[in-house]
Simulated scan of single mutants.
Amino acid sequence: MDLPIILKNLLKAQENFDSISYSECFSDNAQVFDEGKTHKGKEEIKDWNEKTNEEYKTKLEVIDVFNEDKMTVLTTMGSGNFDGSPIILKYNFEIENDKISSLKITS
């Protein structure tokens, strides 16, 4: 699959449970929506990723990727320490200037 470099970097950071590198994939004013909460800015995104890494140890396997208008949708098989694992997760990205400006995670 032909993924944008920024998404390759994000997946590598997640694979290594590296919240600093993960957050660096986002723009300064980026937003992440996950589990009913919104995390704004790199610092909140880093903190959210650290917490989810510690709690869930999520591993992602890419199943599909497609672009729709300004949105890139990455479909993954997510596994880890959570109920229902493994589960299909959709990562809905908006990318601007080679950085992620918005991410909404849905199942």
Rank of each mutant, 00 (worst) to 15 (best):
D2L: 10
L3A: 01
L3R: 05
L3C: 02
P4W: 00
P4E: 01
I6G: 05
I6D: 01
L7I: 14
K8W: 00
N9F: 00
N9E: 07
L10N: 08
L10V: 01
L11S: 03
A13E: 03
N16F: 08
F17D: 05
I20D: 13
I20M: 13
Y22V: 00
Y22S: 06
Y22A: 04
S23G: 06
S23T: 02
C25E: 07
C25F: 03
F26W: 07
F26S: 06
F26A: 09
N29G: 03
N29I: 08
N29D: 14
A30F: 06
A30R: 05
A30K: 00
Q31M: 15
V32D: 07
V32F: 10
V32K: 06
F33K: 12
D34F: 12
E35F: 11
K37Y: 13
T38E: 09
H39I: 02
K40T: 12
G41F: 03
G41N: 03
G41A: 02
E43V: 10
E44A: 14
D47A: 15
W48H: 09
N49P: 00
N53W: 01
N53R: 08
E54Y: 09
E55V: 08
Y56W: 15
Y56S: 10
K57Y: 11
T58N: 08
K59A: 07
E61N: 11
V62A: 12
V62Y: 00
V62W: 06
I63M: 15
D64A: 15
D64Q: 12
D64R: 11
F66G: 00
F66R: 13
N67F: 09
E68K: 10
E68M: 08
M71P: 01
T72V: 14
T72W: 03
V73T: 14
V73C: 07
L74D: 03
L74T: 03
M77W: 02
G78P: 00
G78H: 00
G80S: 05
G80M: 06
G80Q: 06
N81K: 13
N81V: 08
D83I: 10
D83S: 13
G84S: 06
P86M: 11
P86E: 10
P86Q: 06
P86V: 06
I87Y: 08
I88G: 02
L89I: 06
K90T: 04
Y91M: 10
Y91V: 02
F93Q: 01
E94Q: 13
E94S: 09
E96P: 00
E96Q: 14
N97D: 15
N97Q: 11
K99S: 09
I100N: 02
S101K: 14
S102F: 13
I105T: 08
